[in-house]
Amino acid sequence: MSQAFIHLENVGVVYPNGHHALEGVTADLSPGTICGLVGVNGAGKSTLFKSIMGFITPTSGKVEITGLPVKQALKKNMVSYVPQTEEVDWNFPVLVEDVVMMGRYGYMNFLRRPSQADKKAVDEALQRVGMQDYRKRQIGELSGGQKKRVFVARALAQGGKIILLDEPFTGVDIKTEDSLIALFRILAEEGRLMLVSTHNLGSVPGFCDTVMMVNKTLLAYGPVETTFTQDNLAAAFGGMLRHHQLMGDELHDDPDARGVTVLTDDERPLVLYGEQGGQKIVRTKETAGEGIGRHD
């Protein structure tokens, strides 16, 4: 068995104001996979991210990255972070190439003067995500998908084996989402661990290998096929999801008992099909607005 990239052992976080954000999270995340981190707002997704990023120190349990304590792993540039679109100040006076160069700061001396190797890494990373023609743009002058690619390029330039992505699909259209997913899949296949927090349920079966479902604690963790079930989703989201069910007698004229369940939080829906209790995920394909108008 390969060594776990992220080892979470009974991780708990209590904030100074007494708020219990997370309790008893235990999981081993392996390289070469995309792991979805799913839960409602306030379920502890960002708290878990921050614990892995060394932003907060868990009040109980421990986090290890490739067998090292978080602080040491960070010093070795093992972890990269792609922030949520809303977190970034897009008016900030930085060019695309400046942002990607920030990925190399960890390799530079205290004055942060880039070497030839640093410049080369930036070129390659920009090439990789197809943003080399935009390197002199100020970051606010980009489209939603391009903005994401710049920060993914920064992660690549950093060379980290673990990439944390915070809600990468908010504010991007479906075509862009698909092309980002294709990029993430390639990056995972090259041996990285991609941990993606998302509330976009429908896209999870399409690109995640494993899924962590959190609500103050880790409700379930495992392969998408067996973990991303209706019961676990109900536990993770409570009454927060729209839930449409079409059972056998509504769907078929014959005694076929299989029914369709559609779960959505107004993003891409999750569709399950089969007999009650044994419904399986249907990998839906979404196309950009063909035939049907927007349904807000």
Binding site: M53, G54, F55, K71, L74, K75, N77, V79, S80, Y81, P83, E87, V88, D89, F92, V94, M102, G103, Y105, G106, R154, Q158
Partner: peptide, 12 residues
């Protein structure tokens, strides 16, 4: 100023 999360992740 720009991205304290990235700063933290690279050990600043």
């Amino acid at each position: 100023c720009f991205d304290p999360a990235h700063a933290a992740v690279i050990g600043v």
